[in-house]
Amino acid sequence: MLQTIRERDDLKGLLLVGPIAFWLGLFLLVPLALMVVVSFADRGTYGDVVYRFSLDNYRALAAPEYARILGRSVEVAFWTTAMCMAAGYPLAYFIALSPPRRRWLLLFLVLVPFWTNFLIRIYAWMIILRSKGVLAAFLGAVGLLPGPAEAWFARIQLYTPGAVLVGMVYEFLPFMVLPLYASLEKLDLSLLDAAADLGARPWRAFARVTLPLSLPGIVAGSVLVFVPAMGMFVVPDLMGGAQTVLIGNLVNNQFLKARDWPLGAAASMVMLVLTLGVTLLYTRVFGSGEELVA
């Protein structure tokens, strides 16, 4: 009798979940598996894929110029994550400490810019950071340009690596604030009182209580920023100029311009292994061990 009831539930569950399983399986998992296959294939004469096992693509990626691209990509993704964390943590903390009625609005206001198209957000920074753009005009008006701000402006103006970082941070900041807020919001403030009662000054209390307890948010936020930052090619494309080629650009170029799909697939596999590896490592090291920080 128990068995028959369970089977009926099995059927209902399968009917409800079947469509999503089909969709994700056929249009997401199968293509990703195909990508693995293609990355071990050869490129035909006309840009087609010849299914013949070969490691040539991965060997080609070991060349110094590709290794440099890879290194730069990791570096940019890392700094984007770090800067989002530095900028996002105080903001998330501020929202979590605000009265509950206002909290929702404050969080909403962080999300609104994120809902506007991301090309539009890039464009906004393009007109700000252009050599004769809004920022340059402002600095000129207050007498810093030409003048003391010159060197600083040169590092972040459009078509420099600095500009790429500015654009990336602006793109991904909400991804960091949201999970940070979610874990800070759950924090029981009486714990801070308890810490104070036990003799901890505010900063110590923050370091020993607030920070460790917000670790799940830190981990989630970092993953949510790092993953898309690794694959991003549009920001470097539009804001970085010729000097900033990242692995995303490499993949994109191989697929849409050079038409060397096997090489592009191999590069994307390297990117995938790298992002998954970093994500896994990060969640393993920090996700389970709150005591590591305390």
Binding site: P31, L32, M35, V38, V227, M230, G231, V251, N252, M271
Partner: peptide, 18 residues
């Protein structure tokens, strides 16, 4: 969780190839 942990560009090219 696949779309969360896999960069969009990878999903994009995979679908194109598929």
């Amino acid at each position: 969780y696949v779309p969360v942990v896999i960069p969009e560009v990878v999903m994009g090219i995979a679908m194109l190839a598929f």
